[in-house]
Amino acid sequence: MAQVSLNNIRKVYPNGVEAVTPSSFHIQDGEFVVLVGPSGCGKSTLLRMIAGLEDITDGTLKIGEREVNDTDPAHRDIAMVFQNYALYPHMTVRKNIAYGLKNRKTPADEIARKVAEASALLNLDEYLDRKPSQLSGGQRQRVAMGRAIVRDPALFLFDEPLSNLDAKLRNQMRIEIKALQRRLGVTSIYVTHDQVEAMTMADRIIVMNAGKIEQIGTPEEVYHRPASTFVASFMGAPPMNLLSAQARDGSVHYGDTVVTGCNGTEGQVTLGIRPEDILPDDNGPLAIHVDIIEELGAHRLLHGSIGDDRLTMHVGKDTPVSTGPVSVSVKPGAASLFHHQTGQRL
């Protein structure tokens, strides 16, 4: 296992584009950290710098106690799992898993032992003599993971490994990857654009936007205390409702209605409320006009408008609902406040 430390790591391409602004964070031994953000936010570039596949423009990268800025990828003691699996089509599963070990001139008996261990761990025993074309997407991803596991790396790097799978397989594989990482205890960095993967798999999440880190925190911290309106709107399905409001006299007002309290803030603010924190309440101070109801089995999503803003509510399957006006209140202490210009949390 290994700790990973980034100190003001930066990436600027020859054309002057700054793909990653100076970024610093520390990953503990055995931690599972997820880099998440939209396409083009710099998350894969950052991962590739850690892997040694991209040069570092500025800053210092350490894996363990060793600075590796100029260290060849093969000597960083890492294993990487890609989106496209990168399996050799003419080789069997057994030979694909063993390929890296064979190249390193590992003794044959040790290769056989490690392949057998990885195969048992990943439930691949019955597929060892098949070619990749004879496997499902999930099985091919397991083979790619097996090839990484047999190297006994200090660090696992995952670059959107589930993007090519259907929704059901993605759900299954993210559980398997997390369980496998827990069992092996290997420090892992995982890149995804899928906030559900980030929330369900990570010990800590690093949210990126336009080349910079917006927030680092546990899934609970990132979800319930987003550092910015970007994080609030990106993390969560559906995302946090963001409403234009006024802070005055120790309270936050939406129109003429007091929604929540505040300390030391005056003037225009952005009010953030998670859909599940808006509660149907016959005596509630706010009135939402519901125009769409999404039935999702265990719960419902109610989409509507309040003033000039759109808003989504999350209610249980047994909550009676209908389109039209609905009186609601906000769960006490659940609202977030953001600066109306910078979008930063107040």
Results as ranks from 00 to 15, higher is better:
residue 113 R to W: 03
residue 123 N to D: 15
residue 28 Q to W: 00
residue 219 P to C: 10
residue 225 R to M: 13
residue 202 A to Y: 03
residue 200 T to W: 10
residue 174 R to D: 03
residue 112 A to M: 06
residue 41 C to G: 02
residue 134 Q to H: 13
residue 338 F to Q: 01
residue 36 V to D: 05
residue 209 N to S: 13
residue 282 D to S: 15
residue 234 F to L: 09
residue 18 E to P: 01
residue 39 S to D: 12
residue 304 G to C: 09
residue 303 H to Q: 13
residue 224 H to G: 00
residue 295 E to C: 04
residue 218 T to R: 02
residue 289 H to T: 15
residue 156 F to E: 01
residue 8 N to E: 15
residue 171 N to G: 15
residue 285 P to Q: 11
residue 60 T to C: 06
residue 198 A to C: 01
residue 311 L to M: 13
residue 266 E to H: 13
residue 249 D to V: 13
residue 227 A to S: 13
residue 38 P to V: 07
residue 211 G to S: 08
residue 110 E to L: 10
residue 277 D to N: 14
residue 227 A to C: 12
residue 125 D to P: 00
residue 20 V to L: 01
residue 264 G to S: 12
residue 24 S to Y: 04
residue 319 T to C: 11
residue 189 I to W: 05
residue 42 G to K: 03
residue 232 A to R: 08
residue 315 V to E: 06
residue 135 L to I: 07
residue 117 E to P: 09
residue 179 A to R: 15
residue 200 T to F: 01
residue 276 E to T: 03
residue 74 A to P: 00
residue 217 G to L: 03
residue 16 G to N: 04
residue 172 Q to A: 14
residue 165 L to V: 08
residue 213 I to M: 11
residue 257 T to P: 02
residue 73 P to E: 11
residue 154 A to M: 05
residue 112 A to F: 00
residue 89 P to K: 02
residue 47 L to I: 11
residue 219 P to F: 07
residue 137 G to K: 10
residue 99 Y to R: 06
residue 72 D to M: 07
residue 311 L to P: 02
residue 245 A to E: 02
residue 259 V to D: 08
residue 145 M to W: 04
residue 278 I to A: 07
residue 191 V to S: 03
residue 185 G to A: 08
residue 53 L to W: 05
residue 51 A to I: 13
residue 254 Y to G: 09
residue 127 Y to S: 11
residue 244 S to T: 15
residue 30 G to Y: 10
residue 232 A to S: 05
residue 82 F to A: 05
residue 335 A to T: 12
residue 96 N to I: 01
residue 244 S to N: 15
residue 312 T to S: 14
residue 35 L to P: 09
residue 112 A to P: 04
residue 62 K to C: 14
residue 218 T to C: 00
residue 192 T to I: 05
residue 102 K to I: 14
residue 294 E to W: 10
residue 199 M to G: 03
residue 256 D to P: 07
residue 325 P to T: 12
residue 177 I to M: 12
residue 125 D to S: 14
residue 177 I to V: 13
residue 167 A to M: 08
residue 167 A to K: 02
residue 117 E to H: 12
residue 84 N to A: 12
residue 52 G to H: 10
residue 95 K to M: 07
residue 275 P to I: 02
residue 142 R to Y: 11
residue 246 Q to T: 15
residue 63 I to V: 10
residue 269 V to C: 01
residue 144 A to Q: 05
residue 128 L to G: 06
residue 44 S to H: 08
residue 240 M to V: 14
residue 313 M to C: 12
residue 229 T to Y: 10
residue 162 L to R: 02
